[in-house]
Amino acid sequence: MEVRTIKVFTTVDNINLHTQVVDMSMTYGQQFGPTYLDGADVTKIKPHNSHEGKTFYVLPNDDTLRVEAFEYYHTTDPSFLGRYMSALNHTKKWKYPQVNGLTSIKWADNNCYLATALLTLQQIELKFNPPALQDAYYRARAGEAANFCALILAYCNKTVGELGDVRETMSYLFQHANLDSCKRVLNVVCKTCGQQQTTLKGVEAVMYMGTLSYEQFKKGVQIPCTCGKQATKYLVQQESPFVMMSAPPAQYELKHGTFTCASEYTGNYQCGHYKHITSKETLYCIDGALLTKSSEYKGPITDVFYKENSYTTTIK
């Protein structure tokens, strides 16, 4: 009895394709271990004539594949690729409408935090270190965002349907971005203890939790000093293409032309909904596939993004 075979390709990165001759009487799992086709788990399936010449994702289970996976995804987590594939199996079914010149995501599976993050990423200057993220990001900007969303979920250790947080998501993504040249110098002034300067680099240099107003941050924000008295913390120097200011959701007025974009969060910790506000020729609110415009805006804002380049204080 002759062994019926077909020729397929296996890959971990969709760049390096490895030619395989597979036995049609055995499952993919018996031949390769966990195997995925377009995100779908085909591990328990036997090869079919229609699979001839198709590319299958496999887990990096030998040295060659491990090197290829690390170079593309910059992670050695053995569960990463499987999590990416199972997320992709959902995100490829989502709709990605162009809204006001940006790629958004039609609401499904509690994905409003991903839509808000995706919209924000198209408006701030950011370059990702893992080629996987950078490639998928370019495709997302062009309207094909399924891979990018699935990668975000995998890097953030999230599953489809789980509630997510924009600030946490951005923080994970910033860790995989090139923020080497970003720098922030802060000064804390206390009447009792004097003053202390701190220099922050990388992710810490672009994120701040405690106030939404970048102007206020430049002037000074009140913080408790270690001595128990009130101290003032203010920005001395900022070198970065953008800054992200966050605070627990509270009524906040966004003035046209003073910011790049913002995240609105309605609801409580267990259950809520994100919308995205962007400042173009007027203010726009993007909620999944829905767009509304207004000249002014007041609502429960939790993150505001500002364009920056270089700032030095005039406070002496």
Rank of each mutant, 00 (worst) to 15 (best):
T292W: 02
Q238M: 04
L88V: 03
Y36I: 06
T116F: 04
M24W: 07
Y311E: 00
E204N: 06
Q122T: 05
H90R: 14
Y208D: 01
L118R: 01
L186E: 15
C182Q: 08
L133N: 01
L102P: 04
Q216F: 01
T11S: 11
N111L: 06
G101N: 10
E239G: 04
E162Y: 06
S181T: 12
N110P: 00
T43R: 11
A145P: 11
L200C: 11
K127C: 10
G257A: 03
T64P: 12
L114F: 09
L81D: 07
G267M: 00
K307D: 10
Y137P: 06
Q175D: 09
A142S: 11
K280E: 04
Y96H: 04
Y72W: 10
Q270F: 10
V185Y: 03
T43S: 13
L59W: 15
A154H: 03
Y214H: 05
A231M: 03
C261Q: 08
E52F: 11
T116A: 12
S213L: 07
T76F: 09
C190S: 06
G272L: 00
K280V: 06
S213K: 07
K229H: 12
V243D: 03
L179A: 00
T35P: 01
A289S: 10
L121A: 07
A231W: 03
V12F: 08
L254I: 02
S246K: 05
V304P: 03
L212Y: 08
L212H: 00
M207S: 05
N61W: 12
K127Y: 08
K219H: 08
I315V: 13
S25C: 15
C227V: 03
S50M: 13
C112G: 01
G53D: 13
T260S: 06
T313P: 10
F70Y: 10
D13N: 05
I105F: 01
A117R: 02
Y138F: 14
L81H: 13
Q216K: 11
S263P: 00
G228Q: 00
A40F: 13
N309F: 03
K218G: 02
R184Q: 05
T75M: 12
A154L: 00
N61P: 12
K92A: 10
G53R: 13
V189R: 09
L283I: 15
V304G: 00
Q123P: 05
F128M: 05
T64Y: 12
E264N: 01
R4A: 12
K201M: 15
L59P: 04
T55K: 10
V42W: 14
L119S: 05
N157A: 02
T312D: 01
M170A: 05
G288F: 01
Q122D: 05
C285V: 15
E168Y: 05
H256K: 11
V3I: 13
E52I: 12
G267Y: 08
D135V: 09
V99I: 14
H273M: 02
K316W: 15
M85C: 06
L290Y: 13
L151I: 06
I277S: 00
Y72S: 10
G299P: 06
V21C: 13
F217E: 02
P249A: 00
L126Q: 05
Y214Q: 01
G101T: 05
D109I: 04
R83E: 05
P131S: 04
L81R: 05
T11C: 03
F217Y: 04
I152H: 01
T76A: 14
G29I: 02
K93G: 10
L291D: 00
K293I: 12
P78K: 11
Q31L: 12
G210F: 00
K93P: 08
N187Y: 06
T76N: 13
L65Q: 11
Q230F: 14
I45H: 11
Y297Q: 00
T302D: 00
I45R: 13
E296G: 08
Y155F: 00
G143T: 05
L235G: 00
N309Q: 15
T159C: 13
A154I: 05
E281Q: 03
Y306G: 01
Q31Y: 14
A262G: 09
I124W: 06
I286A: 04
Q123K: 03
P60T: 07
T232F: 11
S181K: 12
Y265C: 02
S295V: 08
K233R: 14
S25P: 05
C225T: 03
V22N: 06
Y269T: 12
W107S: 07
K93Y: 11
P60M: 09
Q197F: 08
T211V: 13
I286H: 01
W94T: 03
I15R: 13
T211F: 01
P34D: 10
F70I: 11
D63F: 07
F174M: 09
V236T: 06
M170V: 06
L37N: 13
G299F: 00
A289C: 03
V236N: 02
A117V: 13
H256S: 09
Y252Q: 01
T292F: 08
D180C: 06
T282D: 05
R141G: 10
Q216C: 05
T312S: 13
T258S: 08
E144H: 12
T103S: 03
L17N: 08
L37V: 11
G228T: 03
F174H: 06
Y28C: 13
L88G: 05
Q31N: 12
V21N: 12
A132D: 05
G299H: 00
S263A: 02
N147D: 15
E2P: 12
L283M: 08
Q195D: 14
S263V: 08
Y311G: 06
F70H: 09
D287C: 00
Y84R: 03
E204H: 09
R83P: 04
E215R: 06
V8F: 07
T64K: 12
A142C: 14
N110A: 02
A40W: 11
V42S: 08
T75C: 12
G29A: 10
N16Q: 09
V304L: 04
F56G: 01
E204F: 06
C193N: 08
T312I: 11
N49R: 13
G288D: 00
L254Y: 00
A150Q: 01
L290G: 10
Y36S: 06
I45T: 13
V185G: 02
Y113P: 01
T312G: 08
Y297D: 01
G202V: 02
H276Q: 06
T260R: 05
M26F: 13
Y84S: 08
V221M: 08
T266W: 04
T75I: 11
S295I: 09
K218A: 01
P131V: 04
K280N: 06
L65N: 10
C149Y: 02
T282S: 11
N110L: 00
R66P: 08
L186C: 10
I45Y: 13
E144A: 10
M209N: 14
I286M: 00
A115M: 07
A150L: 04
L88I: 02
A69F: 15
K106D: 14
F174L: 11
T91C: 10
T226I: 13
